[in-house]
């Protein structure tokens, strides 16, 4: 183990220098019924660039159809867009599932489509679910209600995402609604969870004091962006390039990679 670690560190020195990535890893689009009408690809990309971000993840509720459009909208800019989804497990726990490729995300989507109840969206109650192109132009409505629990258990979701090579980050763990701590009591000890997200409503220090059990996990903070002004962009990664493998190393603080949540209050 010791030798392996040393050789890896030596390797690092020969590689490209590490870069700073300022990121927001929890962004909804107009596909999420609860998101604002302005959450279309060009405006998401513009806002992210305007506030100095170079990494975002698109995470609609149990859906991924707008991910390619946002990736296209960011082409040619300094912004990297990671394909993602905010999955809802059968325990009503929300999870950020992040990937390197749309193909990996599509495999998770297949699993979600099989286990998400086929209930039609009530637009008046929940809001519109729009699939759009890279300019934000309407393509079609998603009929099935996305804000619902899949029949994937927390553990099944963890194994599925991990096997696909993705990052598994329980979202807003401090929140009563759809948060891990309220629903499952504590982080399941036998799963090797990459990181936990806290919501914007609490500081990192407050979260650690209020929930001592999460202190030992890498903690990120996101804006859970439903409206364009929700961007927080407070996670700063020091990595070689914006890939899942690099983010994992940053969470583990190995090979010179690191991350921190910068104060925003």
């Amino acid at each position: 183990m010791g030798t392996w670690f040393t050789s890896n560190q030596k390797l690092t020195h020969k590689k490209l220098p590490l870069k700073t990535y300022l990121s927001e890893l929890h962004v909804h689009t107009v596909l999420s019924p609860c998101a604002g009408v302005e959450m279309i690809p060009p405006l998401i990309v513009k806002k992210a660039l305007d506030i100095g971000l170079n990494l975002i993840a698109i995470t609609d509720h149990n859906a991924s159809e707008n991910v390619p459009a946002v990736i296209k909208a960011a082409e040619g800019s300094d912004l990297t867009v990671l394909p993602g989804m905010e999955l809802q497990t059968e325990e009503d726990v929300h999870i950020l599932c992040l990937f390197d490729t749309v193909e990996q995300l599509n495999k998770l989507q297949e699993l979600v489509d099989k286990t998400l109840p086929d209930i039609k969206n009530n637009v008046e109650f929940f809001g519109e679910q729009f699939i759009v192109d890279q300019t934000g132009e309407f393509i079609q409505r998603k009929e099935r209600l996305l804000i619902n629990s899949t029949q994937l258990s927390f553990d099944e979701a963890f194994h599925a995402v991990t096997e696909l090579g993705g990052l598994f980050i329980p979202a807003h763990v401090n929140r009563q609604a759809f948060g891990l701590i309220d629903h499952l009591g504590f982080v399941p000890p036998d799963l090797d969870i990459d990181a936990l997200e806290i919501s914007r409503h609490i500081s990192l220090e407050e979260a650690k004091t209020k929930f001592p059990q999460i202190k030992s996990f890498p903690l990120i903070q996101s804006g859970d962006v439903h409206y364009i002004d929700d961007f927080l962009g407070v996670i700063q990664f020091i990595i070689e390039k914006p890939t899942i493998a690099e983010l994992k190393q940053a969470f583990m603080a190995i090979n010179g990679r690191s991350f921190k949540v910068i104060s925003h209050n």
Binding site: E91, S153, F154, D155, I181, D182, H183, L184, G185, F186, P188, P189, D190
Partner: peptide
């Protein structure tokens, strides 16, 4: 069905009725 509530609300030697089947219920 919220485990955090159970941890503060259920009593020793009580019976717990729940829809939850996640392994955390054992703990």
């Amino acid at each position: 069905d919220l485990l955090s509530c159970v941890m503060t609300g259920a009593e020793p030697e009580g019976l717990w009725i729940t829809l939850m089947s996640h392994s955390n219920i054992v703990a």
